[in-house]
Design a protein around this nucleic acid. Structure first.
Lengths: 182, 182
DNA sequence: CCAACTATACCGTCTGGACGGTAAAGTCAA
DNA sequence: TTGACTTTACCGTCCAGACGGTATAGTTGG
């Protein structure tokens, strides 16, 4: 009998590991995100995991990089119209579409923070840059900042499992913000 | 000069332990908050620590309780005027005064989350109740909600070491919000 | 005397990490 | 085309140390 061929694809396995790690952090808490648990969830031996990420900190770093690169990719083309408030509107729109697709929160970042708070510094810089772009492009920078913060708050609450708003209220929020940005 | 008497006071030692735990979580990350480390930082033996908190989860629970009771105490008398927007204004005012006193963020909550995300459920309920009070008391519930969220975002960012706003901008934010709530 | 600890020893489990092995896929000269 | 060799993509095992927790005997101020 012929066994099903074992497809070896470095990039795909790597991605599977990253996703498994995120899933554990989200469902069982960052503290449960051990290398053993991640390896098991990714369908990989611990040795295999360490082949892809030689050390836990490399795995954590990869989660940060992943998050930042996604952030970049998504917001690349969307805000290039140059029209007033285009950047903050693109951010809100991106938030809405994330929500519609049930995109899970980046719980991996919390695991990173749990083990080494300083590793989130790139995230901070990145968000600061983004806020600068929002403000530079806004008709009312103060209001745009508040809008940005409000969305951030909803995302943070989701990350920490302490969401205070229900689905309808979030829609109401984005509608309200959007209406005032036109 | 008289030395400060070595007073053995259960409540004070308990408090010292709680503060030491918070400090470790804040400075070295939630993952570093082991019982050994907390005991050492609190100037207490491990046995002594376990005398006060029989098990780590009891310590975590205490941190949640502590946080919630402080939340309550602070906002008890402040919002009782019944005047429109009094509740959200009190919240903003409380935020400002916390900031002036350099109150450290409740990093213990992140340690709690790291080990058991569900333990923050009381915090969620609590914040939801508070938001309800804000809205019931607001002239413009939508704006009040956005104001609440904006402050929450700043607090979350501080908690996660990813603060995007500098001191002056935070003052600007609270001024801007306050002005629109009168 | 008692509450409030300290000090020390210990246990079972888990954790990150090191290490040697190995099967399959790719490379390449003859 | 084939056999020799290299690289890739893992697996399985082991280990020292840290972890949460238990137990017990001793110390100290009021």
């Amino acid at each position: 009998m012929t066994n099903p061929p074992v497809v070896r694809d470095k990039a795909k396995t790597r991605q599977r590991i990253l996703e498994a790690a995120e899933a554990i952090a989200r469902r069982e808490g960052p503290a449960a995100m051990s290398l053993d648990a991640v390896a098991a969830a990714a369908g990989v031996s611990k040795g295999g995991l360490l082949y892809h990420f030689p050390g836990k900190s490399k795995l954590l770093q990869a989660m940060v990089d992943e998050y930042l690169s996604r952030f970049d990719t998504v917001l690349e083309g969307e805000a290039r119209t140059g029209r007033p408030n285009a950047v903050i509107l693109a951010y809100i729109q991106h938030f809405i579409s994330e929500r519609e697709r049930n995109t899970p929160p980046p719980s991996g970042l919390l695991a990173v923070f749990a083990e080494d708070p300083d590793m989130l510094a790139p995230v901070q810089r990145h968000e600061r840059n983004f806020l600068n772009r929002i403000r530079a492009n806004a008709t009312d920078p103060e209001f745009a900042t508040v809008a940005f913060l409000a969305i951030q708050a909803v995302r943070s609450a989701e990350l920490l499992n302490t969401q205070v708003l229900v689905e309808g209220e979030i829609t109401q929020l984005t509608d309200w913000l959007t209406a005032r940005l036109h």
